[in-house]
Structures are given as structure tokens and as C-alpha cells.
Simulated scan of single mutants.
Amino acid sequence: MSGQSTRRTVLKGAALAGAAGLGVAACSTDSNLGHAQNPVPTAPVELGAPSEVPVGTAKLFREQRVLVHCPAEGQYKAFSAQCTHAGCLLDKIEKNEGNCPCHGSRFDVTTGKALQGPATVPLPEVPVRVENGKLIAGPKA
């Protein structure tokens, strides 16, 4: 029995070490995005053409860590694409829900609201606008 107990202890320790490694990776620093506690752009970030987000859809701009929803022609709403549970980057959007691959949290891409845990805090809203034919996230320069 002590062999099983020791094995379980080792496996639990390995799982915790792996989770700790994920947390460190998820909280990496980016000069425009801050860190997991402030995952919104702190400087203007170019996303792409407004036509990339048709009315009624949302698009995940993974590299810039922003998701953008277009509720009506010429209107855009943006949120951080970092999960509010552990800071992992959302990986896809399905049926107006953003998915976190780390622990299964899901978010409403139209409101940022956490729909499925472990996340309970909504995604932070990010200012977004169209300038010179491009979607720009973050504060004005």
C-alpha cells in the first residue's frame, strides 16, 4: 500500500508542477498587453480590416490577444482574449462563445460574460475603433 501512496504523491507533485508551469507561461509579459492582471492593450494595437469581422460575428485576434464582436454595421465591441481564470489565451470561437483550452472556461463574445467555469469574472472590455480603414484596439495614442 505504501508503494501506491508514494506513487500518488509523486503524480500529484508532477501535476502541480505542470500546473505551475502553465501559470508562469500564461502570465508572460508583452510590452503592449501588460500581464494576466491587466490583459488589455496599453498602447494602440492594429488588428486588421473591419471586413474581417462581419455583422453578427466575432473574430479572435490571437496574436494581439483581443477578440472583436460586430453587433451591427460599423459597430464593434472588443474584449481581452485572456481567460480571467488563469490568463490562458482563448483558442477559438464557436456559437458566439470563446473557449479557454486550459481549463474549459467559456465566455460570451458579445458581452465578455463568463458562461462556464472555472472562470467567474468577465473578460475585460477593450476600447476599439476604426482608423484609416483598420480596427485599432487600445487607448488612443
Rank of each mutant, 00 (worst) to 15 (best):
Ala137Asn: 04
Val40Lys: 05
Lys140Ser: 12
Glu97Arg: 13
Ser105Gly: 09
Leu47Arg: 03
His69Gly: 08
Asp108Cys: 02
Arg65Met: 07
Met1Tyr: 12
Glu94His: 08
Asn32Arg: 12
Thr111Arg: 00
Pro50Asn: 08
Pro41Gln: 07
Ile136Tyr: 03
Gln116Pro: 08
Ala15Pro: 04
Pro41Phe: 02
Glu52His: 08
Lys77Pro: 01
Asn132Leu: 09
Ala119Leu: 06
Thr9Phe: 12
Leu16Gly: 11
Val68Gln: 01
Arg62Val: 15
Ser28Met: 14
Lys134Val: 12
Lys134Arg: 15
Val68Thr: 02
Glu46Leu: 12
Cys100Gly: 06
Pro124Ile: 04
Thr9Asn: 14
Arg7His: 12
Gly34Phe: 00
Thr57Asn: 10
Ile93His: 06
Val109Ile: 13
Ala72Gly: 08
Thr84Asp: 04
Val24Trp: 09
Glu63Asp: 13
Pro122Lys: 08
Gly48Asp: 07
Gly138Gln: 01
Lys92Trp: 10
Ala36Tyr: 05
Ser105His: 06
Val126Glu: 02
Gly104Cys: 01
Ala25Cys: 09
Glu131Gly: 04
Gly104Ile: 03
Glu73Ser: 12
Ile93Trp: 03
Cys27Pro: 04
Ala49Gln: 12
Gly23Ile: 03
Cys100Met: 08
Glu131Arg: 11
Pro71Asp: 04
Ala137Trp: 03
Thr42Leu: 12
Glu73Ala: 14
Lys140Gln: 11
Ala119Lys: 01
Ser28Ile: 09
Gly21Leu: 13
Ala72Glu: 14
Leu67Asp: 03
Leu135Ile: 08
Thr120Val: 12
Ala137Leu: 06
Gly3Asn: 14
Pro44Ile: 01
Gly138His: 00
Gly87Ile: 03
Thr84Trp: 05
Ala26Arg: 07
Gly138Val: 00
Ser28Glu: 14
Leu22Pro: 00
Arg65His: 08
Pro124Asn: 07
Pro41Lys: 02
Gly74Asp: 11
Val130Glu: 09
Val130Tyr: 06
Thr6Asp: 13
Ser51Cys: 09
Lys134Ser: 10
Glu73Phe: 03
Gly23Ser: 04
Lys134Ala: 11
Ala26Phe: 15
Ile93Pro: 00
Ala15Asp: 13
